[in-house]
Amino acid sequence: MLHIHCPYCEEYREEEEFSVVGEAHIIRPLAPEELTDQEWASYLFFRKNPRGLHHEMWAHSHGCRKFFNMTRHTVTYQILETYKMGQQPSITTEDTK
């Protein structure tokens, strides 16, 4: 059971209030028609599965219903930061922790 800081409610809540969405920072191409099938497929289907730091999107489903992003370590399950939609992570390598 993770303990997750909701950047909108500005406090920690239990994992049962949240749902995980998937990899963060996947941007929908502005002109899908101009992409090759392969490019489109990589947007649609291909996701990272790193051992270590991962940026992922969560939603505070039972709370404020807001989506936000999280930098999480996939081995230790430590959450290094959560940040609002539209913001960039401040932690991108393990050294900075």
Binding site: E14, E16, E17, H62, C64, R65
Partner: peptide
């Protein structure tokens, strides 16, 4: 301390 009077939370 964490849930003072007048606070509102949405939760499971």
């Amino acid at each position: 301390d964490s849930f003072p009077i007048n606070k509102v939370i949405g939760t499971a």
